[in-house]
Design a binder for these strands. Structure first.
Lengths: 111, 111
DNA sequence: CTGGATCCTCGAGGATACTG
DNA sequence: CAGTATCCTCGAGGATCCAG
């Protein structure tokens, strides 16, 4: 049992799930893994989600120190999203999650 | 874009999150990582959840091939849950998620 | 272009009681 | 002991419109 920010966790895994388990967060990290993207580019990458949801999840991930939001004060506005050093530190985990997901599909392709 | 079981995934990570992203799934895997547990033992380990939810998540994980449900036909009933080989193959990922969660806490302990 | 504000849906998750 | 059956809550996620 660990207490962190007034919340009790059974193990650090629970916290990790909370940080990256949101509906689009892991995939957002995936898309940002090797590039910087603007808000509208992300919108186009996720045609099945809404601006609100994307903005919300990006905001949470920024608050949690996973991504960096860089705003250019110009007209028209321009905002770029990229990974922080800590966000990048999640990449190995993400890659192993990716590999495991691929293994799962490979093993269950015939069903 | 990958289609698997009539659902479209952006990347295998999305599938992985679906398989282990449920509220208790990752922690269930964690608890079962090195031991076999009976239903009531799991109930006692999760005082903040209900039989229904635990049974539901266990059922899904059994369906997804992550855990093994072994029923002993006796009175009183006895059911043991353990990890399948495929469930065990997720352990390295889980450990890295655990380590990363610990790192996160360590870096943010002063806030 | 990058969001915020508002209102709404819907299903994950919970409370409680019952059963083989 | 190991669950189901029912009913219900509540908030994540969505639709839509507005704003700097």
């Amino acid at each position: 049992m660990i207490t962190f920010r007034d919340k009790v966790y059974r193990c650090p895994v629970e916290l990790t799930i909370e940080l990256i388990g949101g509906k689009w967060k892991a995939v957002l990290l995936w898309e940002l893994s090797n590039k910087t993207l603007r808000f509208n580019e992300l919108i186009r990458l996720f045609p099945n989600t809404t601006r609100k949801m994307l903005a919300q999840q990006l905001k949470e991930m920024e608050r949690d120190g996973l991504i960096l939001r860089q705003e250019y004060y110009q007209i028209p506005p321009k905002v770029e999203y990229s990974l922080t050093a800590f966000g990048k530190s999640f990449m190995p985990v993400l890659f192993s999650m990716n590999q495991w997901g691929m293994d799962y599909m490979a093993e269950n392709i015939q069903e």
